[in-house]
Design a protein around this nucleic acid. Structure first.
Lengths: 146, 146
DNA sequence: ATTAAATTTAGAGTTAACTCTAAATATATA
DNA sequence: TATATATTTAGAGTTAACTCTAAATTTAAT
């Protein structure tokens, strides 16, 4: 009915070192210890880890994640702060996704460029390809609108 | 017809310190110096910076970015290596985008959860909301299929 | 009951990517 | 031409997030 730190780490794709580090940093105040002092992760604890992973994966620092967890411990008085935090994180995430979309366009250009270069065995010919030159200007020119 | 390091930094949203650091790490072998030793960034150099930013923004280490730049300096013999590198980076990027999409679902759940909690002034009532409980199980349960 | 594997702690060490400093030189502004 | 601002270098310092170690204790496997 509970997971050892090793089992929890495996489920989350983390190391036990990392989980103990998170605990030391105050990110896992909800994880209980057994009579002999071993950490026992419940299913609910695993859900906390999923939230931590989500915030970390969207670029939040461990310090700010701890802030959120502290607000949770404080109770209902912090509900609006937590709501605002997730709204801000959603905005940040949507900006990240838009940024990645632009990176994808650049990488697709490079793949097209090097695919042509590979065919002809040289980049010189590709530099005279009008379509790729126009795409390059559109996608990479720093003086275009951001 | 060329940018100073300060102008280049401003255009890229970086600091001059960072550009000099990149240069020291071998990422900017193409940037020329003026007669008196000042770096002069051409438009083409700015395009290199855009590529570096793209690779960095999609999670490539500066060390691996340098590897790519070294291949470019080596010439046509490395075209296929460069093509494969961008294909790998595209795969990585698509995985990242899928991951962010999943994070967005989690954050949207949290916003729905705390919006309800904010209305009632307490999280307790929300925990009895059947729809949110089902969504929580679907979105956060570690034992569901990844 | 042995043995092997996992866990505990405190604390030291590592890594990547900056970030800053100081003193000298160069460039732009009034 | 003064003065202010920008740039140069080498090298030191910082930060976040791990990552590892060692010695003791606990748990699981035979």
């Amino acid at each position: 009915m509970g997971y050892s730190i090793g089992q929890a780490a495996k489920k989350m794709g983390l190391t036990t070192h990392t989980l103990r580090y998170y605990d030391k940093e105050g990110l896992l105040p909800f994880v209980k210890k057994s009579g002999s002092g071993l950490r026992v992760f419940s299913d609910e604890d695993m859900e906390w880890l999923v939230v931590i992973e989500c915030l970390k994966g969207t670029g939040m620092s461990l310090k700010n994640i701890k802030q959120y967890i502290d607000w949770c411990l404080e109770g209902d008085a912090t509900i609006d702060k937590r709501l605002e935090m997730f709204k801000r994180q959603k905005n940040k995430l949507e900006e990240q996704m838009a940024e990645l979309q632009k990176y994808l366009e650049k990488i697709n250009y490079k793949i097209a460029y090097y695919t042509e270069a590979s065919k002809s065995g040289s980049v010189d010919a590709v530099k005279r390809n009008a379509y790729l030159a126009a795409e390059k200007k559109r996608i990479f020119d720093i003086n275009n609108a951001a």
